[in-house]
């Protein structure tokens, strides 16, 4: 079993969101970078669990980004990836990124490709589906459970107001979210071992960019909260009905 886990570098969930260069770039100064939580907690940890159940499993990590991604790749290796591939390119276009990942996936002939359900910065939720289409593989998105039964997978995915259980033959692409696995913290042995695991840097293949970010905006500052006295909570109901008109 060979699993490819796609990881992405994102600002920490508590990072201050600001923009530079006339609002065309994310202001990265002083920002703490992490592995995108969906990629780490759900996609990678579930892959590690599959390897624990079957030690012959091989986990490769892939990321598309510059050398500043290396610290988060090392952390993912410390958690349990066997080796990593970094495609040395910087892009915010999902299609460009998906094409790079699909190229790596084709060359490595993986049984499974895992992604997080989206990145917490650009919220595209697109790369997994694009990779699946490029590989002509089935795609199960927003998976909350993944069980391997021989050469088939039983997957629970979220649908409006509930869930659906699917059975799919490998190979396939799965986007992972809460429920798949529990967050882990790398141990000292993992951290030491990660230093000697291969991190292969490859140059990107030629690909088109279908979209580009023209600019960013911050939402207008919120007016301060209108407080109602705890002695007259019925006043809140009146305001919601007559002023906000939402009930």
């Amino acid at each position: 079993m060979k699993i490819l886990v796609c990881i992405s570098k994102t600002p920490d969930t508590t990072a201050k969101i600001a923009f530079a260069d006339n609002n065309t770039k994310f202001a990265a100064d002083g920002v703490q970078w992490i592995i995108n939580p969906y990629d780490e907690w759900y996609a990678l940890v579930r892959a590690i669990e599959l390897k624990e159940a079957d030690p012959s499993t091989v986990i490769h990590l892939v990321t598309v980004g510059g050398a500043d991604c290396d610290p988060i790749i090392r952390k993912a290796l410390a958690l349990g990836g066997d080796e990593a591939i970094r495609v040395n390119a910087d892009s915010h276009d999902s299609f460009y990124i998906a094409l790079q990942i699909a190229d790596i996936a084709k060359k490595g002939s993986y049984d499974l490709v895992f992604t997080g359900k989206e990145t917490i910065d650009y919220n595209g939720s697109s790369v997994g589906g694009m990779v699946a289409e490029l590989l002509e593989m089935p795609y199960v998105s927003l998976a909350t459970k993944f069980t391997l039964i021989g050469s088939e997978a039983e997957i629970v995915r979220e649908i409006e107001g509930g869930e659906e259980t699917d059975k799919v033959a490998l190979p396939l692409v799965v986007s992972c979210q809460k429920g798949m696995a529990e967050q882990r913290i790398p141990n000292m042995k993992g951290i030491m071992g990660a230093r000697s695991k291969p991190l292969n840097v490859v140059e990107p293949v030629a690909a088109d960019t279908l979209t580009s970010i023209a600019s960013f905006d911050l939402p207008p500052a919120k007016a301060s909260v209108k407080l109602v006295s705890p002695d007259t909570p019925e006043e809140l109901v009146r305001l919601l009905h007559e002023e906000a008109k939402v009930i």
Binding site: F95, A98, S125, G129, M130, A132, S141, L210, T211
Partner: peptide
């Protein structure tokens, strides 16, 4: 979220999600 990205590749059409 599952279909639009696949269609984007199929038609080579740029996708803005969200």
């Amino acid at each position: 979220k599952a279909i639009a990205p696949r269609l984007s590749v199929r038609l080579k059409a740029g996708l803005v999600s969200g």
